[in-house]
Design a protein around this nucleic acid. Sequence first.
DNA 1: CGGCAGGTGCGGA
DNA 2: TCCGCACCTGCC
Length: 278
Amino acid sequence: LTWQGEAIGIRYEDAGTLWKPRVRLSLWSRKRLARSFVSGLVEELLYRRNMHLDLSEFYRIARKDKALAGCIDRLPGMRPSNRASLYEYLMVAIVLQNTSVKRSVQMMQRMFETYGETLVFDSRALCAFWRPDRLDEVGEDELRALKVGYRAKSIKRVSEAFARGVVDEACMRQVPLEQVRRAVLDLYGVGPASAGYILFDVFHGLGELDYLPPFELKVLSAVVFGTEPSKPVAPDRLLTFFERFGRFKMLAAHYLWEDVFWRRHEGEAAWLDALIRL
DNA sequence: CGGCAGGTGCGGA
DNA sequence: TCCGCACCTGCC
């Protein structure tokens, strides 16, 4: 992670129990870190990882639904957790657009290799993001050579906006979500799908669900209504279903989503494989 | 080898 | 506001 221009290696360890959760944090850095730097970083991580989120109200509402109750039992305490800054998340969101997971991974990999910074710590090597101004100065054709396709234009334009300092993430956390939505939609290459992810993952808008892209529709329709993955219900029908979770609409969808992917990981829900095309 | 994939901007109705 | 269309690339 890059925080205030410093590249930091981070290890999280489970150091508690379900009822007394604790996370032990280890940090690696080139320079000795000031106490104030570390406390600022910890505060940021607490925010990004949604550590302060109290799920009890959501659980009270969601337990009324049988499918959600099952998810809560299997994933108690689970919360949306984001590791990226707004800028970094935007880079991922753009790379995910209108393509397969496999290609998104390739695009991200090539951008990390070319512009990222590899950090070796804790006996592993991980890549940190580049700074926005680094991509602001490269040509669109140079980016296209990394096989990102027409997304090169969005990557450049978003990087330019951040390099010019016209987007202030800290400030956006303080304003109403509708204002944040308009601000991110103003960025070139951000549409309803990307804005939805950002409002939920980056700005913790737990009720942000008013658009379902094709892949999400197929998976959630199968989970909620038991449809064939290739024959999902109409988006509006699914959106209506989630209305019952009120200000936790997207969190409910997130629970169903994480649960089915976790079950796939455990060898169940094999029908997902055909959809994913890794 | 055309169609399509975890969308979006744009022009025109 | 809504709709149709083009768009990089790689795999089926």
